[in-house]
Protein backbone atom coordinates (compact mmCIF):
# COMPACT_ATOMS: atom_id res chain seq x y z
CA UNK A 1 0.00 0.00 0.00
CA UNK A 2 2.99 2.27 0.57
CA UNK A 3 3.45 2.93 -3.15
CA UNK A 4 -0.02 4.44 -3.09
CA UNK A 5 0.91 6.96 -0.47
CA UNK A 6 1.54 10.47 -1.48
CA UNK A 7 5.21 11.39 -1.54
CA UNK A 8 5.20 14.34 -3.91
CA UNK A 9 6.53 17.55 -2.47
CA UNK A 10 5.66 20.98 -3.83
CA UNK A 11 8.28 22.59 -6.08
CA UNK A 12 7.74 26.28 -5.46
CA UNK A 13 10.52 27.52 -7.71
CA UNK A 14 9.38 25.46 -10.68
CA UNK A 15 5.78 26.49 -10.05
CA UNK A 16 6.89 30.14 -9.87
CA UNK A 17 8.69 29.89 -13.17
CA UNK A 18 5.81 28.12 -14.89
CA UNK A 19 3.35 30.66 -13.49
CA UNK A 20 5.42 33.60 -14.72
CA UNK A 21 5.81 32.04 -18.17
CA UNK A 22 2.12 31.14 -18.24
CA UNK A 23 1.05 34.68 -17.42
CA UNK A 24 3.44 36.03 -20.04
CA UNK A 25 2.02 33.65 -22.66
CA UNK A 26 -1.55 34.58 -21.71
CA UNK A 27 -0.77 38.26 -22.02
CA UNK A 28 0.75 37.82 -25.46
CA UNK A 29 -2.26 35.85 -26.68
CA UNK A 30 -0.64 32.39 -26.77
CA UNK A 31 -3.63 30.85 -25.05
CA UNK A 32 -2.89 27.18 -25.69
CA UNK A 33 0.68 27.44 -24.43
CA UNK A 34 -0.44 29.52 -21.47
CA UNK A 35 -3.02 26.90 -20.61
CA UNK A 36 -0.43 24.12 -20.63
CA UNK A 37 1.90 26.08 -18.39
CA UNK A 38 -0.80 27.14 -15.97
CA UNK A 39 -2.20 23.62 -15.69
CA UNK A 40 1.32 22.53 -14.85
CA UNK A 41 1.39 25.12 -12.07
CA UNK A 42 -1.85 23.75 -10.61
CA UNK A 43 -0.36 20.28 -10.68
CA UNK A 44 2.73 21.48 -8.84
CA UNK A 45 0.79 23.66 -6.45
CA UNK A 46 -3.00 23.52 -6.65
CA UNK A 47 -3.34 26.06 -3.88
CA UNK A 48 -2.21 28.91 -6.15
CA UNK A 49 -5.25 31.06 -6.68
CA UNK A 50 -3.44 33.09 -9.28
CA UNK A 51 -2.83 30.11 -11.55
CA UNK A 52 -6.53 29.17 -11.43
CA UNK A 53 -7.48 32.81 -12.11
CA UNK A 54 -5.26 33.03 -15.18
CA UNK A 55 -6.52 29.65 -16.33
CA UNK A 56 -10.02 31.10 -16.40
CA UNK A 57 -8.66 33.77 -18.77
CA UNK A 58 -7.30 31.18 -21.23
CA UNK A 59 -9.99 28.52 -20.74
CA UNK A 60 -11.41 26.89 -23.85
CA UNK A 61 -15.04 27.41 -22.89
CA UNK A 62 -17.04 29.57 -20.49
CA UNK A 63 -17.96 26.42 -18.53
CA UNK A 64 -14.30 25.62 -18.03
CA UNK A 65 -13.59 29.24 -17.06
CA UNK A 66 -16.40 29.06 -14.52
CA UNK A 67 -14.97 25.88 -13.01
CA UNK A 68 -11.57 27.55 -12.58
CA UNK A 69 -13.08 30.64 -11.00
CA UNK A 70 -15.15 28.51 -8.64
CA UNK A 71 -11.99 26.69 -7.64
CA UNK A 72 -10.45 30.06 -6.75
CA UNK A 73 -13.48 30.85 -4.62
CA UNK A 74 -13.37 27.45 -2.94
CA UNK A 75 -9.77 28.19 -1.96
CA UNK A 76 -10.51 31.75 -1.00
CA UNK A 77 -14.16 32.85 -0.81
CA UNK A 78 -13.05 36.51 -0.57
CA UNK A 79 -11.23 36.62 -3.89
CA UNK A 80 -12.85 39.66 -5.51
CA UNK A 81 -11.63 38.96 -9.03
CA UNK A 82 -13.10 35.48 -9.02
CA UNK A 83 -16.38 36.83 -7.65
CA UNK A 84 -16.53 39.43 -10.40
CA UNK A 85 -15.53 36.91 -13.05
CA UNK A 86 -18.28 34.52 -12.04
CA UNK A 87 -20.82 37.32 -11.98
CA UNK A 88 -19.72 38.39 -15.44
CA UNK A 89 -19.87 34.85 -16.84
CA UNK A 90 -23.28 34.26 -15.35
CA UNK A 91 -24.70 37.55 -16.62
CA UNK A 92 -23.53 37.17 -20.18
CA UNK A 93 -26.46 38.07 -22.43
CA UNK A 94 -26.35 34.99 -24.66
CA UNK A 95 -24.21 31.88 -24.82
CA UNK A 96 -24.37 32.05 -28.63
CA UNK A 97 -21.81 34.83 -28.53
CA UNK A 98 -19.14 32.41 -27.36
CA UNK A 99 -19.44 30.26 -30.41
CA UNK A 100 -19.34 33.27 -32.70
CA UNK A 101 -15.57 33.73 -32.89
CA UNK A 102 -13.96 30.33 -33.19
CA UNK A 103 -15.28 29.05 -29.86
CA UNK A 104 -13.01 31.17 -27.72
CA UNK A 105 -14.55 33.39 -25.13
CA UNK A 106 -13.26 36.78 -24.12
CA UNK A 107 -13.85 37.65 -20.50
CA UNK A 108 -14.27 41.29 -19.63
CA UNK A 109 -11.22 43.19 -18.50
CA UNK A 110 -12.65 43.25 -15.01
CA UNK A 111 -11.93 39.53 -14.77
CA UNK A 112 -8.33 39.66 -15.90
CA UNK A 113 -6.15 38.77 -12.96
CA UNK A 114 -3.49 41.10 -11.72
CA UNK A 115 -0.01 39.81 -11.23
CA UNK A 116 0.04 40.22 -7.47
CA UNK A 117 1.75 37.83 -5.06
CA UNK A 118 0.16 34.40 -5.41
CA UNK A 119 -1.90 32.96 -2.62
CA UNK A 120 -1.54 35.94 -0.33
CA UNK A 121 -4.97 35.51 1.27
CA UNK A 122 -5.24 31.83 0.79
CA UNK A 123 -6.71 29.68 3.48
CA UNK A 124 -4.90 26.34 3.52
CA UNK A 125 -6.95 23.22 3.03
CA UNK A 126 -7.20 21.01 6.06
CA UNK A 127 -4.85 18.08 6.17
CA UNK A 128 -5.84 14.70 7.55
CA UNK A 129 -3.58 11.96 8.71
CA UNK A 130 -4.15 8.71 10.52
CA UNK A 131 -2.77 8.65 14.05
CA UNK A 132 -3.99 9.28 17.58
CA UNK A 133 -7.22 9.06 19.49
CA UNK A 134 -10.66 9.99 18.24
CA UNK A 135 -14.38 9.43 18.77
CA UNK A 136 -15.37 8.47 22.31
CA UNK A 137 -14.83 4.79 22.96
CA UNK A 138 -17.54 2.84 24.70
CA UNK A 139 -16.34 -0.34 26.33
CA UNK A 140 -18.76 -2.57 28.20
CA UNK A 141 -17.42 -5.22 30.55
CA UNK A 142 -19.16 -8.57 30.84
CA UNK A 143 -20.57 -7.41 34.19
CA UNK A 144 -21.90 -4.16 32.71
CA UNK A 145 -23.46 -5.93 29.74
CA UNK A 146 -25.17 -8.39 32.07
CA UNK A 147 -26.45 -5.62 34.34
CA UNK A 148 -27.86 -3.78 31.31
CA UNK A 149 -29.60 -6.97 30.13
CA UNK A 150 -31.15 -7.45 33.58
CA UNK A 151 -32.38 -3.87 33.61
CA UNK A 152 -33.89 -4.14 30.13
CA UNK A 153 -35.49 -7.49 31.03
CA UNK A 154 -37.17 -5.95 34.01
CA UNK A 155 -38.61 -3.07 31.95
CA UNK A 156 -39.82 -5.53 29.33
CA UNK A 157 -41.52 -7.66 31.98
CA UNK A 158 -43.15 -4.69 33.73
CA UNK A 159 -44.31 -2.88 30.63
CA UNK A 160 -45.26 -5.77 28.39
CA UNK A 161 -43.07 -4.14 25.73
CA UNK A 162 -42.50 -6.07 22.55
CA UNK A 163 -38.80 -5.38 22.75
CA UNK A 164 -36.27 -2.96 24.16
CA UNK A 165 -33.07 -1.86 22.49
CA UNK A 166 -30.17 0.19 23.77
CA UNK A 167 -28.13 1.98 21.10
CA UNK A 168 -25.71 4.89 20.97
CA UNK A 169 -26.05 8.20 19.14
CA UNK A 170 -23.69 6.94 16.46
CA UNK A 171 -26.30 4.27 15.65
CA UNK A 172 -24.58 1.27 17.17
CA UNK A 173 -26.64 -1.48 18.75
CA UNK A 174 -25.54 -2.08 22.34
CA UNK A 175 -28.12 -4.42 23.82
CA UNK A 176 -31.46 -5.89 22.81
CA UNK A 177 -34.05 -7.77 24.86
CA UNK A 178 -37.53 -9.11 24.19
CA UNK A 179 -38.93 -10.37 20.92
CA UNK A 180 -36.41 -9.23 18.39
CA UNK A 181 -36.15 -12.31 16.21
CA UNK A 182 -36.95 -11.45 12.63
CA UNK A 183 -36.34 -7.80 13.37
CA UNK A 184 -33.15 -6.21 12.05
CA UNK A 185 -32.19 -4.50 15.28
CA UNK A 186 -28.90 -3.21 13.90
CA UNK A 187 -30.62 -1.26 11.15
CA UNK A 188 -33.32 -0.24 13.61
CA UNK A 189 -30.65 1.22 15.92
CA UNK A 190 -29.07 3.18 13.07
CA UNK A 191 -32.43 4.63 12.05
CA UNK A 192 -33.56 5.39 15.60
CA UNK A 193 -30.29 7.16 16.35
CA UNK A 194 -30.65 9.20 13.18
CA UNK A 195 -34.20 10.09 14.10
CA UNK A 196 -33.52 11.12 17.67
CA UNK A 197 -30.34 13.00 16.85
CA UNK A 198 -32.24 14.83 14.13
CA UNK A 199 -34.70 16.06 16.75
CA UNK A 200 -31.77 17.46 18.74
CA UNK A 201 -30.86 19.49 15.69
CA UNK A 202 -34.50 20.44 15.22
CA UNK A 203 -34.60 21.73 18.80
CA UNK A 204 -31.54 23.82 18.12
CA UNK A 205 -33.03 25.27 14.94
CA UNK A 206 -36.26 26.37 16.61
CA UNK A 207 -34.27 27.96 19.42
CA UNK A 208 -35.16 25.41 22.09
CA UNK A 209 -32.43 25.62 24.72
CA UNK A 210 -32.86 22.01 25.90
CA UNK A 211 -32.69 18.98 23.62
CA UNK A 212 -35.86 17.15 22.64
CA UNK A 213 -35.26 13.99 24.63
CA UNK A 214 -38.26 11.90 23.68
CA UNK A 215 -39.79 10.85 20.44
CA UNK A 216 -42.93 8.80 19.93
CA UNK A 217 -43.79 7.07 16.67
CA UNK A 218 -47.41 5.93 16.68
CA UNK A 219 -48.61 3.13 14.43
CA UNK A 220 -51.73 1.01 14.11
CA UNK A 221 -50.32 -2.02 15.92
CA UNK A 222 -47.03 -0.83 17.35
CA UNK A 223 -45.68 2.31 18.90
CA UNK A 224 -41.98 3.06 19.10
CA UNK A 225 -40.67 5.24 21.86
CA UNK A 226 -37.20 6.77 21.67
CA UNK A 227 -35.44 8.42 24.56
CA UNK A 228 -32.02 9.79 25.40
CA UNK A 229 -30.03 8.01 28.08
CA UNK A 230 -27.41 10.56 29.03
CA UNK A 231 -25.59 12.27 26.18
CA UNK A 232 -24.44 9.25 24.22
CA UNK A 233 -27.11 6.56 24.45
CA UNK A 234 -30.63 5.94 23.21
CA UNK A 235 -33.32 3.63 24.50
CA UNK A 236 -35.81 2.26 21.99
CA UNK A 237 -39.01 0.62 23.22
CA UNK A 238 -41.37 -1.12 20.83
CA UNK A 239 -44.78 -1.79 22.39
CA UNK A 240 -48.29 -2.49 21.19
CA UNK A 241 -50.83 0.26 20.96
CA UNK A 242 -52.87 -1.09 23.88
CA UNK A 243 -50.11 -0.26 26.37
CA UNK A 244 -50.78 3.15 27.91
CA UNK A 245 -48.10 5.59 26.81
CA UNK A 246 -48.00 7.17 30.26
CA UNK A 247 -46.87 3.89 31.75
CA UNK A 248 -44.15 3.42 29.18
CA UNK A 249 -42.92 6.91 29.82
CA UNK A 250 -42.78 6.27 33.56
CA UNK A 251 -40.92 2.98 33.14
CA UNK A 252 -38.56 4.63 30.74
CA UNK A 253 -37.66 7.31 33.24
CA UNK A 254 -36.95 4.66 35.84
CA UNK A 255 -34.90 2.66 33.36
CA UNK A 256 -32.76 5.68 32.55
CA UNK A 257 -32.14 6.18 36.27
CA UNK A 258 -31.14 2.55 36.61
CA UNK A 259 -29.00 2.40 33.49
CA UNK A 260 -26.93 5.50 34.15
CA UNK A 261 -24.96 4.14 37.15
CA UNK A 262 -24.23 0.93 35.24
CA UNK A 263 -22.87 2.86 32.30
CA UNK A 264 -20.87 5.22 34.50
CA UNK A 265 -18.84 2.37 35.94
CA UNK A 266 -15.27 2.37 34.82
CA UNK A 267 -14.62 0.10 31.88
CA UNK A 268 -13.29 -3.44 32.03
CA UNK A 269 -10.32 -4.55 33.98
CA UNK A 270 -8.57 -7.87 34.43
CA UNK A 271 -10.85 -10.37 32.73
CA UNK A 272 -10.57 -8.56 29.42
CA UNK A 273 -6.92 -7.76 29.37
CA UNK A 274 -6.16 -11.04 27.63
CA UNK A 275 -8.58 -10.07 24.85
CA UNK A 276 -7.02 -6.62 24.57
CA UNK A 277 -4.00 -8.37 23.19
CA UNK A 278 -6.17 -9.94 20.51
CA UNK A 279 -6.12 -6.79 18.39
CA UNK A 280 -2.53 -6.98 17.29
CA UNK A 281 -0.71 -7.20 13.98
CA UNK A 282 -1.91 -10.76 13.60
CA UNK A 283 -5.47 -9.57 14.02
CA UNK A 284 -5.08 -7.02 11.23
CA UNK A 285 -3.71 -9.66 8.87
CA UNK A 286 -6.42 -12.16 9.73
CA UNK A 287 -8.99 -9.43 9.27
CA UNK A 288 -7.64 -8.66 5.82
CA UNK A 289 -7.89 -12.28 4.70
CA UNK A 290 -11.38 -12.46 6.19
CA UNK A 291 -12.37 -9.37 4.20
CA UNK A 292 -10.89 -10.76 0.99
CA UNK A 293 -12.79 -13.99 1.53
CA UNK A 294 -16.08 -12.22 2.17
CA UNK A 295 -15.72 -10.10 -0.97
CA UNK A 296 -14.61 -12.94 -3.19
CA UNK A 297 -17.20 -15.40 -2.00
CA UNK A 298 -19.88 -14.04 -4.27
CA UNK A 299 -17.68 -13.59 -7.31
CA UNK A 300 -18.35 -15.94 -10.17
Amino acid sequence: MTDRLQTKEPSPSLADQALEAGIQAARTGQKKFARQLLLKVTELDPMREEAWLWLSWVAESPEEALAYLQTVLALNPDNRQAQEGIRWLQNRPSPEKDRGSGGEHEPSLAVAPTAGPPGAEMEPLPVMSPSGELAPTLVLSVEQAEAIDRCLDSIAANSGAHCIILADVAGRLIAERGHTSGMNTQVLSALAAGELVATHELARLVGEPARFRLLLNEGENHNVYLSDVGEQLILIIVFDTKTPIGMVRLLLKEAVKELMPILMQSPPTTSETTIDGAIDRDFAQLLESELDASFQSVKD
Binding site: R4, L5, Q6, P10, L39, E43, P46, V127, S129, P130
Partner: peptide, 18 residues
Amino acid sequence: APIPVLQRLFVSDSTPWF
Protein backbone atom coordinates in the same frame (compact mmCIF):
# COMPACT_ATOMS: atom_id res chain seq x y z
CA ALA B 1 -8.53 16.58 -12.83
CA PRO B 2 -4.89 15.42 -12.87
CA ILE B 3 -4.02 13.12 -9.97
CA PRO B 4 -1.17 15.36 -8.73
CA VAL B 5 -3.66 18.23 -8.41
CA LEU B 6 -6.07 16.09 -6.39
CA GLN B 7 -3.25 14.72 -4.28
CA ARG B 8 -2.04 18.17 -3.35
CA LEU B 9 -5.56 19.29 -2.51
CA PHE B 10 -6.89 16.36 -0.50
CA VAL B 11 -4.07 14.07 0.55
CA SER B 12 -1.46 14.48 3.23
CA ASP B 13 1.78 12.50 3.32
CA SER B 14 0.39 9.44 5.01
CA THR B 15 -3.18 9.41 3.68
CA PRO B 16 -3.93 6.37 1.55
CA TRP B 17 -5.68 7.31 -1.70
CA PHE B 18 -7.17 5.32 -4.52
